[in-house]
Design a protein around this nucleic acid. Structure first.
Length: 340
DNA sequence: GAGTAATCCCGCCATC
DNA sequence: ACGATGGCGGGATTAC
């Protein structure tokens, strides 16, 4: 049980705020999981006018907290609202500015980035939003370095996330930062979601696969000179790969490769590599009968002990447990059985 | 789980 | 002046 105090998280509710992102916030921060970390977050939902606020999908939020409680928080979260693209509540912008001035960490989800941008907090920074809104954000706020190709961006005191399910990845990232990976993974497991995805993962790309989104608003041709290297790495996970070897293959210096990795994947070479190796190991555990020992070699993790270390840290289960549970769940006789 | 050697990777900075 | 590059130092992380 972690003893670090994660402080308070305040969410601004506005007319028409989408309930998925709101629900994710409530689930991750609003449920006091004191068996995992004590104290847990102090969570509050804040409205410009306390009382009833019409949120999305016909639901109504009823809260006693106003924006005064918002600016006092350690972490301030802003999501989308009904017409945030066109008109953004001035009092919300003011509250965000004030919160940031007081040292709060500011988090935006989906079109909430428009509020942060309007508050001037994103000037000169890298930020992301839902890919559908990214071109508009970039056009309206030219000083913001909009990157629509990632799930979220952690810029220290300001974090921006894409919409939808990526909100979960962002929230779990925040938990990881505040309370450590073990707590974040435990929360993910309780929510029965797969391992949290790193922020650098593309909004419309499966690692190792092809881009699927034909509606993707950003050019797939431009810029990403690292793609061939990443593909090659995915094809050679089993062999030892050092940063220098990768850099040579990409005709770059070590330092430059690390920087490129940062901008393209949001991760670093080794972290990305380990994540892919664990992914590969998981596939092999699911689809083959290879021994754990063999899978460790095959996935490039070397020794079984090393596989276990990385696998447990990112998946939350040991490799053998993972295989056992996966098999139970997918065995024909027991289809549909719940194994929580 | 601790101890080690190796490697990573990020700030700093001269250079292109 | 400006942005990208990449060598260096060394605390952080990884491998065994």
């Amino acid at each position: 049980v972690s003893a670090q105090n994660p402080g308070s998280v305040a969410v601004a509710v506005t007319d028409g705020i989408p309930i998925l992102e709101l629900a994710v916030l409530c689930e991750v921060f609003g449920i006091a999981r004191r068996d995992l970390a004590d104290p847990w977050y102090e969570f509050r939902i804040c409205a410009a006018d306390p009382g009833r606020t019409q949120v999305g999908s016909g639901f109504i939020a009823d809260t006693t907290h106003d924006f005064g409680d918002l600016v006092n928080a350690d972490t301030v979260v802003v999501s989308a609202s009904a017409n945030v693209l066109d008109k953004r509540p001035a009092e919300l912008i003011d509250a965000v500015v004030e919160g940031h001035r007081r040292g709060a960490r500011i988090v935006s989800i989906c079109a909430g980035a428009f509020v942060l941008a309007a508050a001037g907090l994103l000037d000169g920074r890298r930020a992301t939003t839902h890919w559908m809104h990214a071109p508009l954000l970039a056009r309206r706020f030219p000083n913001v370095d909009v990157d629509p190709s990632v799930l979220y961006i952690d810029d220290g005191d300001i974090l921006t996330g894409a919409g939808g399910a990526a909100a979960l990845d962002l929230c779990l990232h925040v938990v990881r930062r505040d309370l450590g990976p073990d707590v974040a993974n435990a929360v993910a497991r309780r929510m029965v979601t797969p391992t949290p995805r790193p922020g650098g993962q593309a909004q419309d790309v499966q690692p190792g696969g092809q881009a699927q989104g034909i509606e993707s608003p950003w050019p797939t041709d431009g810029g990403d000179g690292l793609a061939p290297l990443l593909d090659w790495m995915l094809g050679h996970l089993g062999q030892p790969l050092t940063v220098s070897a990768m850099a040579r293959r990409a005709h770059l210096g070590d330092r430059t490769l690390i920087r490129q990795f940062q901008t393209v994947t949001g991760s670093t070479p080794l972290r990305w590599l380990i994540a892919q190796r664990v992914r590969r190991a998981r596939q092999l555990l699911e689809s083959s009968d290879l021994s754990v020992d063999r899978i460790a070699t095959e996935a490039g993790l070397g020794s079984p002990a090393n596989l276990r270390r990385h696998f447990t840290r990112s998946v939350g289960l040991s490799p053998s447990d993972y295989r056992r549970i996966y098999r139970l769940r997918h065995s024909p006789q027991r289809r549909g059985t719940d194994l929580n």
